[in-house]
Each structure stands twice: as structure tokens, then as C-alpha cells.
Nucleic acid binder design. Sequence first.
DNA 1: TATTTATATTGCAATATTACGATATAAAAA
DNA 2: TTTTTATATCGTAATATTGCAATATAAATA
Lengths: 110, 110
Amino acid sequence: MGITKTEHFTEQQNDLAILAKAIGHPARIAIIQHLIKVNSCICGDLVNELPLAQPTVSQHLKELKNAGLIKGNFEGNAICYCLNEEGFEKIKVFFESINTYLENKKDHCC
Amino acid sequence: MGITKTEHFTEQQNDLAILAKAIGHPARIAIIQHLIKVNSCICGDLVNELPLAQPTVSQHLKELKNAGLIKGNFEGNAICYCLNEEGFEKIKVFFESINTYLENKKDHCC
DNA sequence: TATTTATATTGCAATATTACGATATAAAAA
DNA sequence: TTTTTATATCGTAATATTGCAATATAAATA
């Protein structure tokens, strides 16, 4: 039905899914990578960096912001976006637990 | 248009997006967590563990498999699924670069 | 061989996502 | 104050995702 049965899963599972889903688009990966590359907030030059129209970029920024992966501050007539450490911290913990498991697991069958 | 402009992004950006998107659903998070919890392949008991019908679970498993996050082997008349280290390795590298950046960055503006 | 058991596929309805033109908003600059 | 610049929102079309009943497949067992 296109509607995820959110209520049947734990809050942690839903939170992680929201974060991963927000990262799950090449434009949003590109935005994150650009933020890291320029090593500061991005104020304005993002539309020129991406192969997408301005409203589309704005929409992707909104989704990253809603997921808690970036945060934006007004800076004059522009808005500056930075990575939000909180969001990435949550995912980090999840992937660390997976990596710990994968490093220690013995290959039982697969 | 609902269609991602895949061709305008790098292969790495698209690959990462596919992986993150596959993780971006609570049922698929639950599957991954269950695989870690039981510390072996899952052969059959997954439908009982999830609040979803069997075809839906099968579909989620397929998506995780297509993304390269799990792998399945026939085991008699059942199929056993395990985590696929390769897929998680790719994401791990991405998140490590983000974490390295976040740990070293000075808060310029946001 | 017939039945059971486990999983996959098909088909479809409901909802979500993606993209962008048009337009709105709001601060800066002329 | 008017214009420019930067960003957000609205509306809408195209496509994707989610979920499941019905059905198919395929190996194990009776």
C-alpha cells in the first residue's frame, strides 16, 4: 500500500530508517560530500554544484534537515547549512554494532 | 517525476544511495538486527519475527539482497540469509570519512 | 506419487518520492 | 522604494515503494 507500518516497529528502528532513507538519494549524498569537501557551511553555491533545479535542491535540503542530518542558520539573506553531528552519531552507533558483529562472526553457513 | 536523475551523479554516489535506501525501512532494519541477534543465518523463522505478511517479508529480503547487504544460500527446502560483509564495508568507509571530518572540524558557523 | 512446508512471484491498490515551473518571501543592494 | 538575490512553498505529473491476497515453485516428507 505504499504505507510503512511504522507502528509495528520500535522507535529506534523507525529512527534509523528515517536517517538511512534520508541518505538514500544520490543528490543528498552529493550534498553531504560537498559539505565535507568545502569544510564549512554552504551558503548559496549548492544549486550550481548539483544537476537539479533550485526547488528540487531546496526540497532535498529540507529532507536532510528534517531527518536531523544537517542544520541551517540564517546568514544575511542567505541560509547556511552544516552537517548535524547528532544525526550522524545515531547512525554511527548502528553501523559500529554491525561492524563489531561482522568482525567477530564465524562463518557458520553463508 | 518520481524518477531519480541517476545519470547526473557519480557511480559512488549512486551506489551509496542504493545501500542507504535499502537500509531505510524499519522492516529491513529489523531484519538486519535479527541477523545480528541470532548470530547466524536465518532460515525460516523471519516471517514469525516480523509484523508483515510472508510476501512482504520476501520482498524486503529481495531488496536487501539486491543492494548487496545480505546473501542467501539454499539449505534443503529452506533458504538461509546472512549479512553480506561487502555491502556493509562500502557504507562503513563512507561513514568513517564523515566521522573523521566531524571529529576534526571546527565550528565555523553552524 | 501426493502432501506438506518454505519461499518467490504476480497483480494490484494505496501511498510516497522525485522533479520542476510558477510563485512567494525576505533580506541586500541599488 | 525598487530591484536584485537567495531560498522556500505550492501545485502537479511521473514514477517508485509498500503491502498483501492469490498463486507459483520447489524441495522434503509421508
